[in-house]
Design a protein around this nucleic acid. Structure first.
Lengths: 185, 185
DNA sequence: ATCAGCATGTAAGGCGTTACATGATTCA
DNA sequence: TGAATCATGTAACGCCTTACATGCTGAT
């Protein structure tokens, strides 16, 4: 019944591109997919152990100097597992925006707080958008491989939705300011 | 350190509009805010008990016939707590889209699967969008109260981002189909 | 009479985050 | 020599979901 934990397929997916350490995996998540998925050492390392037990990945020690280092490699079984997950129609898509929650309930609060929350959101989105745009452009200029096309499409999703967010922020601020006849409290 | 669980403020927020039972709260969440926040009986009922212990809400028995029914009411302390949460600058905004994850890792899979996943996503979004649009229009035609303005703004957020999603779906499908020189596997 | 909806709750488990613990290496 | 980065891992906890358990009411 219980769905497989998604960190497993994230790891398999990253390892399907190249061999990586747990630390590398965390960095890749942070750099490439953090706007739609997250991971932490606290779930990556235990997941690596489980995946290896299930023969979906294999490991080899590759210390650098005296520093411990374990490089993971996806197996054929792991690749098959990844493809099956992609093929599976079930997909959980969740958005949990506390900023919207605060706005939804702002009726009993100070209008300035509502505006401030929107501005904070807007600033964060603008910052993230500028990074995503660079990323997106780099990928667009190098669409030679199938992998890159898919990376580009996810980055494009980020850029286009974030641009929609920013437009909305403008409208929201305007409406809140215009409708001042309610009288802030 | 640990952040307060957000279901608490969701409940306080809904009760700041009107008195409700636990069952009502679940319905309101499903009807009005489910596109950016969720709740389940399994976390609503325990949270109601805690909130009452902390005097943020009060309860009164209001059975209908022989059917048990507990109506909750927000206290002054609860209202204050809600306003403070809104004022607090911290806000966690997370997007977790398994569809994007599948797309990001689609390089080793069949191109048809990638397209199919986008179509499934698009269908779901279109369905939800049509509901959101009706909701949004209703709210727009009745912007007399401050509460309604905020409800409208959150619904507008949904409409505009979902429209951006649908545009992206079109582009994504087109690019995947056009770039067929990679040769699907 | 049966089924959908109203209504309250508990139990188990899953998944994830945060904080902690440890230590090597590289660069300023 | 100290800070940032590389690198692996554990422990505690939080929050939520799913499934289960129970029973009344109203409509067909």
């Amino acid at each position: 019944m219980a769905r497989e934990k998604r960190i497993n397929v994230v790891i398999l997916g990253l390892l399907s591109h190249e061999d990586l350490t747990g630390y590398d995996i965390k960095k890749h998540i942070d750099n490439s997919i953090s706007f739609f998925w997250n991971g932490s050492f606290g779930n990556i390392y235990p997941a690596l152990k489980e995946l290896e037990e299930d023969n979906l990945i294999s490991s080899s020690n590759a210390p650098v100097g005296g520093r411990e280092r374990i490089v993971y490699h996806i197996t054929q079984k792991g690749k098959k597992h990844l493809r099956e997950w992609i093929k599976d129609e079930q997909a959980v898509n969740e958005l949990r925006y506390e900023t919207l929650l605060k706005l939804f309930f702002a009726g009993g609060a100070d209008k300035k707080d509502a505006l401030h929350n929107i501005e904070l959101f807007e600033d964060k989105i603008k910052k993230d958008l500028s990074i995503l745009k660079i990323h997106c452009k780099t990928l667009k200029d190098d669409l030679n491989s199938e992998d890159h096309m898919y990376f580009y499409l996810t980055a494009l999703f980020g850029v286009e939705t974030y641009e929609a967010y920013i437009k909305w922020c403008g409208k929201a601020k305007k409406l809140i300011n215009d409708k001042d006849q309610f009288g802030g409290r």
